[in-house]
Amino acid sequence: MAVTTAQASAPETATREIFMSEALREAIDEEMTRDPTVFVVGEEVGVWGGAYAVTQGLLEKWGPDRIVDTPIAEAAIAGLGIGAALTGSRPIAEFMYSDFMGIAMDQIVNQAAKNRYMFGGKAKLPLTYRAPFGAGTGNAAQHTQSLEAWFAHVPGLKVITASTPYDAKGLLKSAIREDNVVIMFEHKAIYAMRGHVPEGEYLVPIGVADVKREGDDVSVITYARQTHHALEAAEQLAAEGISVEVVDIRSLYPLDTDTILRSVRKTHRAVVLYEAVRFGGFGAEIASQIQELAFDDLDAPVLRVGAAHAPVPFSEPLEQASFPGTAQVVESIRQSLKGVY
């Protein structure tokens, strides 16, 4: 996929900063302008403007034939995307919370993911599912999960997630242009994060990780909001002379194993950081690939840092302690340096 760099198209806009929710909205709006078959469908995407305001103003601009409000019916929303995609449209179907995807699991996993393969490669599903995920918002156990590993496990799906407004916009635009089913997980704690987004057209390719900070002593492999905890930890440890590299994978499937291995072969230590329940989470896949492919380069066992083995609790001190924060990441990096867990 061709990547147009921001620098090439609009160097004078290098200082523009917008929220991640705005960056996502720009991605949708631009792709709707580019392709008349693109439309948005989901709960409260129209009049309300999306539960996290991503589609705010789009109904007024595009009308109800392009911004389609649905009843509360996640299986139907998933199916609307499939049926419309199979017949010539390019839908963006939104789940209000990724936790609600359980209701649509058959449509996503048995239908959307498998149609192309089961039908011998003759079906094409240019379909993007968007889903807010992640903890830290006080919404308790059924609105804060990180279930991305479920979907990365299913052949036929691509799974992406962004840590910055720039990546969010570029990744979502790539997803919409894909002729495959792409699930974009959007961490709800960073919708209101501001970041640099140039005004010109650009894409962030799916399947390419991004080194968000270069370092020499330890690699932290992470994604989405945890990228920021890793960057904060790296900053703190830099004061002590510890040099941390932060790799934001951006895409769970396809996974950019090369970038991960390149980093680990340089630092010889890896901390895999994710916000999902640690046991059986996507970090286990990353850790496993590192030990399979770079075992001899490692000076310490690969360390996984993830959430507690419990549903996400409501009460703030419990919730904050249930998933990794910067302090825990700092501690984990120290552990990795010692090699003693």
Partner: peptide, 14 residues
């Protein structure tokens, strides 16, 4: 059934 509904939505929009 939901897929058929989606195809019908696509036809309506297109």
């Amino acid at each position: 059934i939901p897929i058929a509904t989606g195809a019908a939505l696509g036809s309506k929009l297109r």
